[in-house]
Amino acid sequence: MKKQLLSFFKILVPITIVLIGLQYYFQAKIYTETEFFYSVWSIYAFHVVITIVLYIAILSIHKILPHNTGFVFLGFSGLKMLAAIVFLIPLFQASLENPIPTVFSFFIPYFVYLFLEAFFVIKLLK
């Protein structure tokens, strides 16, 4: 389990650093007039924590019930979607002129991390 977790972190950390840097750049240099509801740190704290907890839970369950790993991933992905909606509720209730840039700044990393999780779960299933 430690080896799998270490290989996951070797990919997770650089991707997170690159994504944070890109998002800071876009928000500071390109979208200077746009009001973002969430800070970059809050978005990535949410994504990194959820991703780490989800992957550790999947590894733990894979150790006990390896034939159910795919179903566990699907279930946790559903819970992750629910957590994302709960995280975004204040944004939906806020009165921003244009909430779309904030939604994109949340969901682009969401799908990158979802792809990363799916890649490692598929690797685990092989």
Results as ranks from 00 to 15, higher is better:
A84D: 08
I89F: 05
P90V: 12
I108N: 01
A94K: 13
H62T: 09
A28T: 13
F76Y: 09
L82M: 14
S77F: 13
I50R: 07
V40P: 00
I30F: 05
L5V: 08
A57C: 12
F76I: 11
K3L: 01
P109L: 03
V13G: 08
L5N: 07
V40A: 01
Y113P: 00
T34F: 03
I50T: 15
L54H: 10
V121I: 14
M1G: 09
V86C: 06
A94I: 13
V18I: 15
L74G: 13
F46Q: 00
K80C: 01
G78W: 02
Y25H: 01
F120Y: 10
A118P: 02
I58H: 04
I64L: 14
S105M: 07
H67N: 12
T69K: 08
K10L: 07
Q4I: 10
K2G: 11
Y44F: 15
F106V: 12
F120A: 02
I122W: 10
I100G: 11
A94M: 08
I56M: 04
F120K: 05
F119Q: 03
A118E: 02
I50Y: 09
I50F: 12
I58V: 15
H47I: 02
I43A: 00
V121W: 02
T34Q: 09
F107Q: 07
E33M: 09
L6V: 14
V13A: 09
L124V: 07
F76P: 00
G78S: 07
K126E: 06
L74P: 08
I122K: 12
L79P: 02
K80P: 00
F9H: 09
E117C: 07
V48M: 01
L125S: 11
N68W: 13
L54V: 13
V48G: 01
T34G: 05
F120P: 00
L114A: 13
E35M: 09
I20R: 00
I122C: 05
L114E: 05
M1F: 12
L96I: 08
F8R: 06
L59I: 14
F37I: 14
V72G: 06
K80S: 05
P90D: 03
I30W: 07
L54P: 02
P90Q: 04
N98R: 10
F9Q: 04
I15C: 09
Q23C: 03
L12N: 06
F73M: 13
T32K: 05
F8S: 07
S60I: 14
A94Q: 11
F104K: 13
T102Q: 08
V40S: 01
Q27S: 03
Q4L: 09
T16F: 01
F37V: 14
K2N: 12
L91Q: 03
F76R: 02
P14H: 06
F26S: 02
F8K: 05
